[in-house]
Amino acid sequence: MYGSTNLTEQDAKRMSDTSAEDPQKLAEFEDRIARGEKIEPDDWMPAEYRRQLIRMIEQHAHSEIVGALPEGTWITRAPNFRRKLALIAKVQDEIGHGQLLYSAAETLGKTREQMLDDLLNGRSKYSNIFNYPAKTWADIAVIGFLVDGAAIVNQVINSKGSYGPYCRALERICYEESFHLKQGHDNFVYLATGTKQQREMLQDAINRWYRPLLHFFGPPDHLSAHSEKLMKWKVKLASNDDMRNQFLDQYVPKILELGLTLPDPNLRKNADGRWEFSDPDWEEFKRVINGDGPCNKERLAVRRYAELAGRWVREALMKPNDTYKVPLA
């Protein structure tokens, strides 16, 4: 998921303890959220609400700019003008989403520089899926259609949350993502209905992305640390399993109807309308999140290069008398 609401056990414990907060203010805050009001940057909010939102929005922002890397390397290789122009615009949008989300997180009191530092020193994460390589042009079709499709499921749900600046950023992002999905789908269909070689490329890419896509929404509910508070505060709005099910419901039929297959003999919809699938290896998910995936090092190395190589530019643009201003949200 882009903005993860998964908690560690320790986080979940901290969340449940609001004894340090003013009980009256807390009650008013929770009433406002229950009435469907949005919380704005200058409003009172519990410390844990602020902390969790920063973590989530920051992670989402990182996912956008790191996510631009695997696709970005295919801009120069896109096979014709139409695909090239679409891909470049799409990847540019992702960077723009990053910019928008860093601004939303900044309204909560953490600067973009601090967030980028934390990305590089490993203190904050980004979506696990971008630690997998985009090996062929067909991967671009799968990312544009299925990874973006999964991201939309997550983002549409999060846009109904309680923090105003994040919701507004997400609404705009979802609007743009729906165009990305169209270009991804178009590319996907061209390959699926193309030559034997094109179909084989696409099938191979689907086979490789199937598990990372199941991982995308986070561990199954029975393995996740749970917090009633996050739900009550409308920071988390749907469970991982529900989001994953929604994604499979929307996309599995679209893949199968093109005559493609999914590499899981146990994938099926049961009588209750829930999708069942083989264990996608949650140990691998943990390993990759903790830095041991196929591309973790490469992704961070590229970001580190950008930070270091660009430092002289940022320093030169800094005015000695400028003071830091929190962006408007």
């Binding site: 700019i65 801009i75 990847v91 960077i95 590229v302 660009g310 530019v313």
Partner: peptide, 14 residues
């Protein structure tokens, strides 16, 4: 287009 993702700041990427 090779600058996508590696500019000195996001605004220059864009």
């Amino acid at each position: 287009s090779e600058w996508t993702g590696i500019g000195p700041m996001l605004e220059e990427d864009l």
